[in-house]
Simulated assay, not measured.
Amino acid sequence: MNTNLNITEIFYSLQGEAREVGLPSIFIRLTGCPLRCTYCDTEYAFKGNNLISIDTIMAEVGQYNTQYVCVTGGEPLAQINCYVLLDTLIKNNYKVSLETSGSIDIEQINPGVSIVMDIKTPCSNEVDKNLYSNVAKLQAKDQLKFVIGSRHDFDWSVDILNQYPTQAGVLFSPVFDQITPTQLADWILEAQLNVRMQVQMHKLLWGDEKGK
């Protein structure tokens, strides 16, 4: 196989978010993203020219003793060969999650992949990029994430959930340094929302160190 992808990094760490939080995982970070969210913490992945074949990626993934692989970015789906990578990982019996912004149609993603899809909140300044038709395509194995930076974001997110019901698990995450985890926890409990609150465990462990 000579299919190439532009890769920012491949690393082994603990999953810091979502359903697999705390599990040793391999992260494949693809380069490039069409969005510019105000709270983005991976701006270093916007640009680069590091083409790697899927054979080479799979060889590197095989060095680690875990079945969990997270394909992330940037925006992974901005590279068409991401679909080939996902298919290859599933074919090789990995448990694969994909982190995507929700701005690109998810229809063609391998059904074995667990999708973790954002809905961009107002504080991101990219709310107009949301492809709301994606929400109905999410299944119980998938997750829908709202990154919340204010009470306005919170109320907006609750309204979106009412407009677009989903089978997926719902994640609410505070924007680091904009609201406290305690504030968000209190809002969730006051509203009696059936959502999962999360904090970025990797930041608690390693701060903003690249690759964690």
Rank of each mutant, 00 (worst) to 15 (best):
T56V: 10
N125K: 08
E60L: 09
V127S: 07
E43Q: 03
E126V: 00
S53K: 10
G48I: 03
A140V: 12
V61Y: 00
L98Y: 02
I119N: 09
D55L: 02
N81D: 14
T100W: 01
I90F: 12
L85R: 01
K91E: 09
G112I: 03
T100G: 07
T56Y: 09
A59G: 04
N130F: 08
P111Q: 13
L89V: 04
Q79S: 07
D55M: 00
D55P: 10
V96C: 00
N93Y: 12
K47C: 08
E60W: 02
R36D: 15
T42D: 02
S97A: 01
Q143G: 10
T38I: 13
N134C: 06
Y64L: 08
N81W: 03
I80R: 11
G32S: 08
Q79M: 04
N134S: 07
Y68R: 14
S114G: 15
Y83D: 07
G62R: 04
K137C: 01
T121I: 13
Q79I: 05
I115F: 01
I26A: 13
E107L: 06
T56F: 08
S97F: 00
N50K: 07
Q139M: 07
C40Y: 02
L98Q: 14
L35Y: 13
L138Q: 05
I54V: 04
C82T: 15
T38A: 14
C40H: 07
K137L: 15
S53Y: 08
Y68K: 12
L86D: 00
I106S: 15
D55T: 12
V113M: 02
Y44Q: 07
L138N: 05
Y68M: 10
E126T: 03
M58T: 10
Q79N: 02
G48Y: 10
L131F: 14
V84F: 08
G48K: 04
D128S: 14
L98F: 05
I109K: 00
P34S: 14
V135F: 11
C82V: 02
G74Q: 05
F27Q: 00
V127P: 01
S101A: 14
S103A: 15
D118A: 13
T56K: 14
I109T: 02
N134H: 14
I80A: 12
R36E: 13
K120H: 11
N50G: 06
V96E: 02
V69I: 12
S53Q: 06
V61D: 10
C82A: 15
K141F: 12
V69D: 01
Y83F: 15
D118H: 04
K91I: 06
D87M: 02
Y83M: 01
S101W: 07
Y83H: 13
E99Y: 07
K129Y: 12
E126N: 08
T72N: 10
P111D: 09
G102P: 13
M58K: 11
K120M: 08
I90R: 07
T88I: 04
L89I: 09
N134K: 03
I80K: 15
C82R: 05
S101N: 15
E126S: 11
G48W: 10
G112A: 12
V135N: 04
T38V: 15
Q143D: 03
L51A: 15
P122A: 12
T121M: 14
N130A: 05
V69K: 00
Y68N: 13
C37S: 07
P111H: 10
G48D: 14
V116P: 02
E107S: 11
G112Y: 09
G73S: 15
D41R: 06
A59S: 09
C123Q: 13
Y83S: 09
Y39L: 09
